[in-house]
Write a protein that binds this DNA or RNA. Sequence first.
DNA 1: CAGTTGTTTTGACAGACTCAAAACAACTGC
DNA 2: GCAGTTGTTTTGAGTCTGTCAAAACAACTG
Lengths: 153, 153
Amino acid sequence: MALGPGSQTHADVLRSTIRGAGLKVTAPRVAVLDVLQHAPHSSAEQVFAEVRKSLSGTSAQAVYGILAAFTGAGLVRRFDPPDSPALFECRVGDNHHHLACIGCGLIQDVDCVIREAPCLTPSDDSGFTIFSAEVTFNGLCRTCQSNRAPQTA
Amino acid sequence: MALGPGSQTHADVLRSTIRGAGLKVTAPRVAVLDVLQHAPHSSAEQVFAEVRKSLSGTSAQAVYGILAAFTGAGLVRRFDPPDSPALFECRVGDNHHHLACIGCGLIQDVDCVIREAPCLTPSDDSGFTIFSAEVTFNGLCRTCQSNRAPQTA
DNA sequence: CAGTTGTTTTGACAGACTCAAAACAACTGC
DNA sequence: GCAGTTGTTTTGAGTCTGTCAAAACAACTG
């Protein structure tokens, strides 16, 4: 890839994404965003471990702070599956949902059939102003199904 | 209320509910189920505090164990809102969803318009066998809206 | 009423996350 | 470029939620 003077590296894109959200651009922030793009559904600790591979001086608290800042700025989405620490991903604003495997904890994205706002309009909002909806399907993934199927005793 | 020999007290109903789920009936279990019926969306600690009012000898670990047993038996439903410990409720199997207030943490039940399985059928289940769906709407409750509205600066 | 089985207590412990203050780095204007 | 301001990161301690294991105990069976 010949990168001419006008072209942007991947890191440049990350930087402008961060700045575009009104946040200062720092090395750990770029690293966190990069990790999240390559490994969605990561826990804070997983992000931390990945970031340390390139930026060994980064602290765990920095990662928590960055994830909180990104979540607040709408750059990443956080969700709390049962029996798991909070997970983070940067697919945001496209209204997709999650399949969670009860057996192995695998998380998979699913697009909603109704593209816009699925059950985003509850029958009775009780005066709430809804900002976002989190839809999580609990089930068993293909692998866990075959592992458990034999136990039909 | 004249309770004749054939009638059931509330405690009797609780006991047969527990036994019906294949679990042994014990005082702390009855108490936990009772608390959950009167105060849905309770955290483990809230349940523990309530239970101790009537059964002062009960331990926190017992409550955790009971909640886990009830959840496994399908008697109660557990869900994990962001920025909050896990909550428990005994409305189960009626496919209702939750409104969560970002401001004050208030949780409110909502019935789904589509009565059976709302987004319970994702567009692509990726080979998963779906057991249940958790739908959480994040927003601001009426009270928090009026508290924040003035800050239009 | 005794035996078996499962529950609860007790106490230690681990994981996820937060708080506060000092050291530090990014963006502003000069 | 360079200093100043503002916000970020580090460091270190600490909190909260929830887990594990073994012994004491209570509920259901016959």
